[in-house]
Computed example of a mutant assay.
Amino acid sequence: MEEQNRNNFKFGFTEGAENWNGRLAMIGFVTALIIELVSGQGLLHFWGLM
Rank of each mutant, 00 (worst) to 15 (best):
E3Y: 09
E3K: 13
Q4Y: 07
R6I: 14
R6G: 04
N7I: 04
N7A: 13
N7W: 07
N8A: 14
F9L: 13
F9P: 01
F9Y: 05
K10E: 13
F11E: 10
F11Q: 03
G12V: 01
G12C: 06
F13K: 03
F13H: 02
F13N: 08
F13Y: 08
F13Q: 01
T14P: 00
E15P: 06
E15T: 07
G16Q: 00
A17V: 02
E18P: 00
E18L: 09
E18V: 07
N19T: 04
N19A: 04
W20K: 03
W20I: 01
N21R: 08
G22E: 04
R23G: 02
R23P: 01
R23K: 12
L24D: 08
L24H: 07
A25S: 14
M26S: 12
I27K: 08
I27D: 10
I27V: 14
F29T: 07
V30W: 09
V30H: 02
V30C: 09
T31G: 11
T31W: 08
A32R: 10
L33R: 05
I34R: 09
E36Q: 15
E36S: 09
E36P: 00
E36N: 12
E36F: 05
L37A: 15
V38C: 12
V38A: 13
V38L: 15
V38H: 11
S39W: 05
G40K: 11
G40I: 07
G40Q: 13
G40F: 10
Q41E: 15
Q41L: 13
G42V: 08
G42T: 15
L43H: 01
H45T: 14
F46I: 03
F46P: 01
W47C: 15
W47F: 15
